[in-house]
């Protein structure tokens, strides 16, 4: 079992935050308030998740676990659209289909084909694995959607030129799609390339602290990294493709009312 952290130990961890806060104050960066709010949110959210997960793991009911996964997917989807600056009302269902499709497919593959826990719907596997994959998909989808639509918006003349030269919509958006997917997966490729040397991955570290054998932890880490990468690429690609019919009019012009902000 992992050694528990006492209240005193947690206070000492929060005390460590005083150092960066002092530096931020000295630099007059004006983000101290935001940092404190983020800290409080993180604490409250994680404490609540800890409480929920305790009961969800005890219940170990497939319906409750799937409901929890559905909540994670909806929250992630709303966050993606907000951060990408796209109107939620227009893209919600399409974006949800992209994120849910890729996350559930890949986590299903990992759990049902590779791990095969008993029972297969074991919440201790289903929730953390889906959560890790979804968290990474969230980041990559924000990057890809934002890069894709801002790319076309900023280069409208170039985009229209492709159409004028005979490209259909799929052909005209391809350069922006390429850029967007690249932007979404670049950080992950860099992380994978340095894993084990520069960074010690969270899942592996967590399992070792939890008492797992290092080789078992490493195998899980390799599995989760492949899952994250596959889900990120599928989600970034699928989400953009699914959004096209909403974002362009019947003359293949980018609609301006899809954005939350004016250019």
């Amino acid at each position: 079992m992992t050694a528990d952290l006492s209240i005193g130990a947690m206070i000492s961890m929060y005390a460590l935050m005083l150092i960066p806060l002092a530096i931020l104050f000295y630099l007059q960066l004006g983000i101290i308030r935001e940092t404190l709010i983020a800290m409080v949110r993180m604490t409250v959210q994680l404490v609540l998740v800890g409480l929920y997960l305790k009961y969800i793991f005890q219940l170990n009911s497939p319906a409750v676990s799937l409901l929890w996964v559905a909540v994670m997917l909806v929250v992630a989807n709303l966050s993606i659209l907000n951060k990408a600056g796209l109107k939620r009302g227009l893209f919600f269902w399409r974006s949800l289909a992209g994120v849910a499709g890729s996350t559930l497919f890949v986590s299903g593959w990992f759990i049902l084909i590779a791990i095969r826990p008993d029972p297969l719907y074991d919440a201790r596997y289903l929730i953390p694995i889906t959560g890790m994959i979804l968290g990474n998909c969230l980041r990559s989808n924000v990057l890809s959607l934002e890069r894709f639509y801002s790319g076309i918006r900023k280069n409208e003349n170039e985009f229209m030129t492709y159409l004028m030269l005979g490209a259909n919509l799929r052909e005209a958006v391809r350069p922006y799609l390429r850029d967007a997917v690249k932007a979404a997966i670049n950080p992950s490729v860099a992380t994978m390339g340095t894993m084990g040397i520069v960074s010690l991955p969270g899942m592996m570290t967590g399992q070792i602290l939890g008492g797992a054998l290092p080789m078992t932890a490493i195998k899980y880490q390799i599995g989760i990294m492949i899952c994250i990468f596959v889900a990120m690429v599928i989600a970034a690609f699928l989400n953009i493709l699914l959004s096209l019919p909403v974002a362009f009019d019947d003359h293949q012009r980018l609609k301006q009312n899809i954005f939350c902000t004016k250019p």
Binding site: Y162, L165, E171
Partner: peptide, 23 residues
């Protein structure tokens, strides 16, 4: 247009760009 967009890095590719489209 007055300020045409060529859409590729190299001039030859710009001239051949439309021929990469299905049409």
């Amino acid at each position: 247009g007055q300020e045409p967009v060529l859409g590729t890095e190299i001039v030859r590719d710009a001239l051949l760009l439309p021929f990469s489209f299905k049409a």
